[in-house]
Nucleic acid binder design. Structure first.
Lengths: 251, 251
DNA sequence: CCCTATTATTTGTAATACAAATCAAGCCGA
DNA sequence: TCGGCTTGATTTGTATTACAAATAATAGGG
């Protein structure tokens, strides 16, 4: 019934990911029932304890629902806990790009400029120090590269954005850090930027940093919006319907 | 060591909530270690199986981390999965109001106007029908009440907001529906609105509905922002640092 | 034909045993 | 004395078995 590729060991993590991907990819359709726990344990050759553990995790991520004597039924995408880091990671590769990636970029475009604005008002000295540190790492990685292939330290990039969200002082916005990590990973995978774009991107990040350091919230907002717009443009996508304050409308 | 009030039966759900609240309220501090599984099972008088089940749930919600031979240590608030509906529900009562509630309202102010804008562009006929239905229920509940005490159907209110988020067509924004439910619950608990405010609120909701129905995204954005601003004002709070397009800046 | 009781199936809980990981202490040798 | 290795103890992780509880399906009686 179910079987993992031979080279993959049958541990909890792998079986979990295998089943999750089957659901995400639609191999197991919504409302369909999974075999009962004993059948699954025999199928995978693991104990029922482990099967239950895996099912419990799938349940907590919103993939399935369980009831006594009903069994396990698969839930639709609207029940999935997409903001969960693992779920997001699995989904990135699987879900047919456009809608998913676009939703993610829209979310960033909504959240991150506001996060930058709040950070400009609320960041403490540690936040500012850390932010500058991450920027330095990005800058050094670009300088260190030779002219031919420009390399940007993606980890530093991710941490830069995460730090801003933490510095926003908003308990909920801080939570999106993990979400962004997966997003950037996927983004970077798709867009192998040209030299010029990388340099532009670095410059754009620097402008955000400086706006926050100088406590100018509106400028931080606008510049972060610019960073994201560039990313979206580089990916050859476009977002419609997000209302952004722009340069002309500055108060 | 740990003990629930006598009147509460010792089932999984109750022990889970009990431990979660201890952590949220700070009775068990961050980085502190919990007793091992056997000790806990003896303490509560349940099997180790159940204790493990509970701990696994706490882990999935970000409250604790577990390692072999290290034991279970409690994590800080930044690890908590605040967007989880249950976590949010427990937190509402426990966390010292101001920071938590303010974060929640900021999040709504960031997300919901944009959701309304997107909904104006993307809502399908079913969405519109459902939205109008929820509005009708709100209106009827107000009309049905006598002059003395005006009653607003909160469930309809919640569903109204959830429907807009679903109609936004954004996979991630849809996820905030559950978050908003808990938020409104808490909000309503605090603010026993005057008659006038209730009528104003109904009117404000109607204006959002009409903007979405007429596919005017910017108007939907502005009017939703108004709804939320009113709520925040009625609670006697104020948000700073959120950048909103306002009437004067209409493009 | 409808209502009720029984049965069967599936998830939920318990108890026990052992495996695996990891920290700490002790030992040994250089 | 220091560093690395071995050994043991502790704690979580996995497996097995048995039984409880919930509920759908079936059979039986009026």
């Amino acid at each position: 019934m179910f079987s993992l590729p031979d080279e993959i060991p049958l541990n909890k993590k792998n079986i979990l990911e295998y089943l999750a991907r089957l659901i995400i990819e639609g191999k197991i359709k919504t409302e369909e029932a999974l075999p009962n726990e004993i059948a699954l344990s025999e199928n995978f050759g693991v104990s029922r304890t482990m099967v239950r553990d895996i099912l419990k995790t799938l349940e907590s991520k919103g993939f399935i629902a369980r009831k006594t004597n009903i069994g396990t039924r698969v839930m639709g995408i609207h029940s999935w806990n997409l903001l969960d880091e693992e779920v997001l990671g699995w989904s990135c590769g699987a879900l047919t790009q456009s809608r998913f990636l676009l939703s993610l970029l829209e979310l960033r475009l909504i959240i991150e400029p506001q996060a930058a604005s709040l950070a400009a008002l609320r960041a403490n000295d540690d936040n500012l120090l850390e932010l500058r540190h991450h920027y330095q790492r990005m800058a050094e990685s670009v300088e260190g590269a030779n002219g031919a292939e420009v390399f940007m330290d993606n980890e530093a990039d991710i941490e830069f954005h995460k730090t801003i969200m933490r510095a926003s002082g908003n308990l909920f916005i801080s939570q999106f850090g993990g979400t962004i990590r997966a997003a950037l990973y996927h983004t970077i995978y798709q867009s192998n930027r040209a030299t010029k774009n990388t340099l532009n991107s670095l410059e754009a990040h620097r402008s955000v940093l400086e706006a926050i350091e100088s406590r100018n919230s509106q400028q931080a907002y606008l510049r972060m919006a610019k960073v994201l717009s560039n990313t979206i443009r580089d990916l050859g996508l476009q977002t419609t319907g997000i209302i952004l304050l722009d340069q002309q409308n500055q108060q």
